[in-house]
């Protein structure tokens, strides 16, 4: 199994192109925020975009929003190309090390955002706040996690790689969007509490109800996937490591994340926890996921040491 170097190089080039496209998308979303008129306060609760507001500025703003979504979608296509060419170069699934895993997670996050913003247009207003972390994450991934395309180690050569890692990527990517929505929800509540005049840009965020709904729906979508990822991982571990669960650091943190998200879903339907506290739980969940990716792979020693980062 040899690595096709020209494809591997193409993959790296596509990576840079997708970062560039996302960066331009951030600019477009910022323009949307800057040129947008601050919507009336009622938008806080209504999920609907400014109704009967034919002011040119609003038009221009929403056009910038559409440009942002289009650029993001284009970036996602190129981003997909990064992984496809990677996989072809090494002739395997392109999630065998941390670089590939994290790149795929960010792609899932971007795709979830695009899908959401097509189905729920007010979500577009949070574009800048989703795409900016995306760009930052990708730059950090490129700088610190980069690993050459190469063959898989023996332990990863199993069909469970496709099942377990794919579902983990999917769950993580969806939680990524969910966590950002909850952060913005908390910001929104603060802006609303100050009357919204303090920061005209932040006042352009989607309403609190919308943000809360986005956070909850994505978490509801991600939770069974994450559950499945953990179960599939346990089944794989049973045949690879001799036990289905052994409190390996990665397993422990996957469990912690599962418990935190279970807590979030319960909290959101429990009096006294609804709203702000529940959103904080979701934010903690995302922090746990990121910690699990970075700390457990790079600092602690466990069986999941496939980072490939020297």
């Amino acid at each position: 199994m040899t690595v096709d170097q020209s494809l591997a190089d193409l993959s790296d080039t596509l990576f840079s192109i997708s970062v560039a496209l996302y960066s331009v998308a951030v600019v477009a979303f910022c323009a949307q925020l800057a040129f947008g008129r601050r919507p009336a306060q009622q938008l806080v609760g209504a999920g609907a975009p400014g109704v009967a507001d034919p002011v040119p500025a609003a038009d221009r703003s929403s056009r910038w929003g559409q440009v942002g979504v289009a650029l993001t979608a284009l970036g996602a296509v190129v981003h997909t190309g990064v992984l496809v060419t990677r996989g072809m170069a090494a002739d395997r699934l392109p999630w065998g090390n941390m670089y590939e895993f994290a790149t795929a997670v960010v792609l899932v996050g971007v795709v979830s955002f695009v899908v959401l913003s097509v189905r729920m247009p007010p979500v577009r207003d949070m574009g800048a706040f989703v795409l900016a972390p995306v760009v930052l994450s990708l730059v950090a991934i490129g700088l610190f996690l980069y690993a050459e395309a190469g063959p898989l180690v023996a332990a990863l050569r199993s069909s469970w790689l496709a099942v377990h890692v794919s579902s983990a990527i999917l769950g993580f990517g969806v939680f990524f969007v969910s966590g950002i929505a909850s952060v913005l929800y908390l910001v929104r509540l603060r802006v609303d509490a100050r009357g919204g005049d303090a920061s005209p840009v932040l006042a352009r965020l989607p309403g609190a109800v919308t943000l809360d709904r986005v956070a909850h729906r994505t978490a509801v979508f991600g939770f069974p996937i994450w559950t499945f990822a953990v179960i599939a991982g346990a089944i794989w571990a049973e045949s690879a490591w001799g036990r289905f669960w052994g409190w390996d650091p990665k397993e422990t943190w996957a469990f912690i994340a599962w418990v935190v998200y279970a807590g979030y879903l319960h909290a959101r339907t429990t009096a006294g926890w609804r709203g702000r506290p529940a959103a904080w739980v979701n934010v903690v969940g995302l922090a746990v996921m990121i910690f699990n990716l970075l700390f457990v792979n790079m600092v602690s020693t466990g069986l999941h040491s496939y980072a490939g980062v020297s």
Partner: peptide, 21 residues
């Protein structure tokens, strides 16, 4: 009560942390 269950969930998550560190 559900509130107790949520708190216990967090305690469980918290209690697992030293096991990984």
């Amino acid at each position: 009560a559900m509130r107790t269950a949520i708190i216990l969930l967090f305690l469980l998550a918290l209690a697992a942390i030293p096991g990984s560190l």
